[in-house]
Amino acid sequence: MRTLRYVILAAVLFCLLSGVAGAGEVQVFKPADEEVSTMELRQRAMAEGFALAVLQEAQTMLGTPLDEARGEAFKQYMLTQARQYIQGYKILSSKVSGEGVALALDVRVNRKLLREGLKSMGLFAAEAGPLTASISWPEGVPEETVVGLQQLMTLTGIRQGVDVLPSFTLEPGPKDAFKARLEMDKQEFVAIDKDLRVLWFKLWSKYFNRDEGTVARSGVQTLSVDGWFAPDAVLEFDGVLRAWESAVQEARLVELDMQPSGVGGVWEVRLLNASRLDSLLKSYLPQRGLTYRLSEKDSK
């Protein structure tokens, strides 16, 4: 029994470590530009490769692909923000010619950090439908700034409303910088940044991460599954459950119950999307002769 326990612990540890980073190959080509040096062109290709890798991993974690407009907006944002999510990379091939620079990269993305980033950006919340908010800006704002705000609304899943909360107000700020105010639930936040996109998510992360402690506690449930014939099958499902990242933020195997009638497992699950998880469980477990129960943690 002790040997079995060590095997189980080792397998669970392997699942935990393998879930930290996601690897993917991307290919990028940047056409030659007389006004851009080869070194700069290569750096741009590298930045786009990282952005594509993060987008690719985000699509997997969200469960449903972003539409073309949101995907492009996400990639453009990640051109300057992707490196914080990159755990490592390998250059598979690099070719410089008169036509441009071609790169093939194998990129490892830190899934834990990316999951937190997607939550702060409102992309998990957007799955439940658009968020109605009031977005305003002063007269005389350059057209490119207005277009930038509209693209950020598209990316974040925000629909324009009138006299509603939350409200985001772009205000006159210091020279060469943006200033904005976010109002919500009797709270108000102000931020200043030279990059409109950074400013936007700096404020909206306050909204999407609000009451995180309360949300986390209420979002933890207990999943019990029975009907397996061997412990290996429980560990296999443990990996499947962790991979359902559009529904589950965290899953931890806390009990392995071995009875003469079969093997059962109990997980503590932190939810992102309860209905999505229920749908995945119904499509996966019954056809394998397994039964499950999902309940609030510590409920009897």
Rank of each mutant, 00 (worst) to 15 (best):
I192A: 05
A128W: 08
L9V: 09
K119T: 04
D211N: 14
I192R: 13
R210I: 09
W228G: 01
V7H: 15
K112C: 03
S275K: 08
E40K: 10
G140C: 08
Q59G: 01
L223N: 05
M184A: 12
E116G: 12
L182Y: 04
I192S: 10
K206A: 11
Y207H: 03
V107C: 11
T145Q: 12
E99R: 14
L281M: 11
L149A: 08
M184L: 15
S167C: 03
F74L: 06
L199E: 04
R111C: 12
A230F: 05
K297S: 14
L196V: 03
P138W: 06
P142L: 06
A58P: 00
R70W: 03
S167W: 06
W204S: 00
R270V: 14
D257W: 08
W267Y: 13
W137P: 02
D106L: 06
S279N: 08
E127Q: 14
V240A: 11
V141H: 12
A73E: 01
R44H: 08
A251Q: 10
R181M: 09
L281P: 02
E144L: 03
L9E: 15
S97R: 07
V263E: 10
D211A: 10
F124V: 01
D195A: 08
V225R: 00
E116A: 14
L199A: 11
R270Q: 15
Y6S: 14
I135H: 06
L41V: 05
G173A: 11
E34Y: 09
R5H: 09
S94N: 13
V162Y: 13
L235F: 02
L271Y: 03
R83Y: 05
E183T: 04
A102M: 08
Q84H: 06
F208C: 01
Q249R: 15
G148I: 00
G129P: 12
M184R: 11
Y292T: 05
S97V: 04
V20I: 12
L113R: 04
L79A: 01
M39S: 13
